[in-house]
């Protein structure tokens, strides 16, 4: 799924990374716990979260994720937007709640399987 499709399905506002909306995402992760996000390996991921602090951007950067969607109308600070711009990560904000947002993306095809690294 392209990032622009995510934006449209969630009726989200793009906060930075407008030029990357044609990039593809194959899997997504919805969580407010960054350590849980870090426990799963995936390619080209999308992060949905209701957590707003700079570690959200760093976590996504470490995981090579290309897009973060803040749910429940959460908005990142200017510092976070700058961090994301530097890391080449698209930021979006949607009024949709987490459960609904994940379900919407899943039924519309964003259901890439996640591989957990063991040992």
């Amino acid at each position: 799924m392209k990032i622009i499709d995510v934006k449209e399905l969630l009726n989200a506002e793009v906060l930075c990374g407008e030029d990357m909306l044609d990039e593809e995402v194959y899997s997504a992760c919805g969580s407010d716990m960054m350590s849980d996000v870090l426990a799963y390996v995936k390619e080209q991921g999308l992060l949905l979260t209701g957590l707003v602090n700079p570690q959200v951007i760093r976590t996504a950067e470490m995981m090579d994720m290309v897009c973060i969607v803040f749910v429940r109308a959460k908005k990142p600070s200017e510092d976070m937007v700058r961090l994301a711009e530097r890391a080449g990560i698209v930021l979006m904000s949607t009024e949709t709640r987490m459960y609904e947002a994940c379900g919407n993306l899943y039924v519309n095809g964003l259901n890439g399987k996640v591989v957990r690294r063991d040992g």
Partner: peptide, 16 residues
């Protein structure tokens, strides 16, 4: 509340 402290830090370090 900052998104950490879930008891995954050291296990994740070992995992990776």
């Amino acid at each position: 509340s900052l998104g950490f402290g879930a008891g995954m830090g050291l296990p994740n370090m070992k995992r990776y």
